[in-house]
Nucleic acid binder design. Structure first.
Lengths: 153, 153
DNA sequence: CGCTATTAGTTACAATTGCAACTATCATAC
DNA sequence: GTATGATAGTTGCAATTGTAACTAATAGCG
């Protein structure tokens, strides 16, 4: 029985990290250059485009960002008038976020771009391969959550 | 024909990013806590464990890190005496890196741990699914490199 | 009510990271 | 040889990011 060696280039977390960094920097560059958006801002924009009137905490949950990151992204989007914020009538701690017309317009510009990039990326994969990938990523995600932080064990 | 919408949670780069962050922080926490290693340090350690006498530039290439990150990781590993460095006889700009006994020992501690984590992660995937995932990631990686940065186009 | 605990969101500060400039060495061309 | 350009690696600085402390508001409970 062969002793398992560790080759960095075969190590799944490493491979995912390299791939993700590559994709993220390509996408981030394009968003910044063309729309003046950072990735956190883009994420906030994206969730608010499909559901309006969310609070910052709800946005945080749906974007897998922490509340500080959301706070900063919201501030930036407010400054560029792509977002408007009111306080919730029922709970004055809560904010209620909504895209402005300008925000929707930016989203309408970015979204096709993002989808085109994804399509380009997935082009060499057959339909079945894409489904397998989707499924594997879902499973890995669940599994990672289940295993959780390895500290304190 | 349905107009393509963009749902963040289905967007591949987003999903990869969330998964990668989850894995990275779990692993980084464990490495730091148990071995006092950062992820860049771990990567350097890992490549030097399988091939000794590399220069910093060669390490950078094999770890997909940039030279600044390698420089910093090397400095940290030198300080903790897990690495030793000499200058190349043939080219005095070049350094020649090699693990010390202590470095090999740390690697011998970390590697099984990393492999166990990977195994735990992949447990719910059948053999064929793992192969499909491997293959898909390879293809995506190549494709991402091919598409390249989207700026200046 | 009044007290304590929780939650929403922001701010402040520390750690990481990325980028540009810099030093030192080597390669090439004349 | 000397000048020009390229390469290896480091350092400094700015931007990003994460963590913890903080403020304001609400909820729960006696």
């Amino acid at each position: 029985m062969p002793k398992p060696v560790l080759l960095l280039e075969d190590f799944l977390p490493y491979r995912l990290s390299v791939l993700t960094n590559l994709l993220s920097s390509a996408i981030a560059g394009a968003y910044r250059e063309r729309f003046g958006l950072s990735i956190p801002e883009w994420r906030v924009l994206a969730v608010l485009a499909s559901s309006s009137y969310l609070s910052a905490a709800e946005v945080a949950q749906r974007t897998a960002m922490d509340k500080v990151a959301v706070s900063r992204a919201v501030r930036a989007l407010l400054k560029t008038a792509r977002l408007e914020r009111r306080v919730a009538r029922t709970d004055r701690r809560r904010s209620v976020l909504r895209l402005t017309a300008a925000g929707r317009q930016v989203h309408a510009g970015v979204a096709p771009f993002a989808l085109a990039y994804e399509r380009a990326l997935l082009r060499p994969l057959a339909r079945a391969e894409r489904l397998a990938l989707d499924r594997a990523l879902d499973i890995l995600m669940g599994r990672a959550l289940q295993i959780g932080p390895l500290t304190k064990r």
